[in-house]
């Protein structure tokens, strides 16, 4: 069974939800977890609920990096921060993968400082999963978008590698034998988007190991046209935040409307079971987290607001990715095009 190092102190609701999530996963699976953080606080939280001590170990470290901290500054000042210690444990072979719901910048930085890039990979990519409409049988209700912030600008070859990495991950973790890969652009035509995107389109179309469906526009992101959407970090991050923002705005507007009118309240009450079903289907907690791809070791970045359920699922995703040898799959795919 894989051993997963979990940054117990990272996340808006850490360590409480992180520890609860790990306790939950210890009772549901045989995955071994190392909780990295303040040992006394971790044990006090474990004591409050059921857990399997045989599957949980604790690595004490006194400091942690806050969600609002500058990652460079914080890591310089806190070399024994939980995320840094957890990443070193993975790099040293004490654990097989890292899960954190903490500061995204610090997670990417720790991965970059401690993990080696897969041979041939030029840059790592931070992926994110998002709920979307499905169009084809067997499609996952979550799409994979990468990069969402590990880079700002990229070269065409780097985008092509992101396509390979995202496709390999989706193939293994989402169990889609041939995930559809799209390049985020301002139009579907292959000549759109400037030199880098045109060249990236040409390279991706020539890749035999991926199922490239061409350019996808912003309106395609939330549909089933592509299972893996590739973008430069700047653009990917904007799209991700836009999706989150729209979701929050829609929820806020609905609440406001319900507050102002009893008719809306009544209508929403009648729709509640359906809304709840959609919310359950699209809850990011179901997926747990998304990977930082391109390194020899895997890091799953869970949402900062992760609940215990999301953390438990992030640990399961990490274990699955280790078991299914996602890094090896990426290495083979990258080697295949060199």
């Amino acid at each position: 069974m894989p051993r997963i190092a979990v940054d117990a102190m990272g996340g808006d609701f850490a360590p409480d939800e992180v520890v609860k999530g790990v306790a939950k996963v210890s009772l549901e699976s045989g995955i071994e977890v190392v909780l990295v953080g303040d040992s006394a606080r971790i044990q006090a939280l474990l004591d409050e609920g059921p857990y399997d001590p045989e599957l949980i170990s604790v690595r004490h470290c006194a400091s942690a990096i806050g969600m609002a901290d500058d990652p460079h500054e914080a890591l310089r000042g806190k070399r024994d921060a939980s995320i840094a210690v957890a990443a070193r444990m993975v790099a040293d072979g004490e654990a097989d993968a890292l899960v954190t719901a903490g500061n995204t910048g610090a997670a990417v930085l720790c991965a970059a400082r401690n993990f080696k890039l897969i041979r041939g990979v030029r840059r790592a990519a931070l992926a994110s999963v998002y709920p979307r409409e499905t169009e084809l049988p067997g499609q996952d209700v979550f799409g994979l978008l990468l990069d969402v912030g590990a880079t700002i600008r990229c070269e065409a070859a780097e985008l092509a590698q992101f396509a390979i990495m995202g496709s390999a991950y989706a193939r293994r973790v989402s169990r889609q034998p041939s995930p559809r890969v799209g390049l985020l652009n301002m139009g579907r035509e292959e000549g759109k988007g400037g030199d880098v995107l045109v060249e990236a389109h040409r390279m991706m179309r020539a890749l035999p190991s991926i199922h490239f469906v061409g350019n996808v526009e912003g309106s395609d992101v939330a549909t089933g046209r592509a299972d893996v959407v590739v973008a430069e970090g700047l653009l990917g991050n904007v799209v991700l935040k836009l999706l989150e923002g729209i979701g929050e705005a829609a929820s806020h507007l609905a609440s406001q409307a319900a507050h102002d009118s009893w008719r809306v309240r009544l209508g929403m009450a009648m729709l509640a079971p359906g809304i709840e079903k959609v919310r359950d289907m699209t809850d990011f907690g179901t997926y747990g987290g998304a990977p930082i791809l391109g390194f020899e070791h895997l890091c799953i970045k869970a949402h900062g607001r992760s609940s215990a359920r999301a953390i438990a699922n992030a640990v399961k995703v990490a274990a699955k990715a280790v078991r299914d040898r996602v890094a090896d799959e990426i290495a083979e795919a990258v080697a295949g095009i060199r």
């Binding site: 071994e32 040992s39 001590p53 045989e54 599957l55 949980i56 170990s57 604790v58």
Partner: peptide
């Protein structure tokens, strides 16, 4: 079926408690 690591985790759990 208990591995050495599982036993070790049990031991450490008892120390933490």
């Amino acid at each position: 079926g208990w591995s050495g690591e599982r036993l070790r985790n049990s031991l450490d759990d008892l120390v933490r408690r």
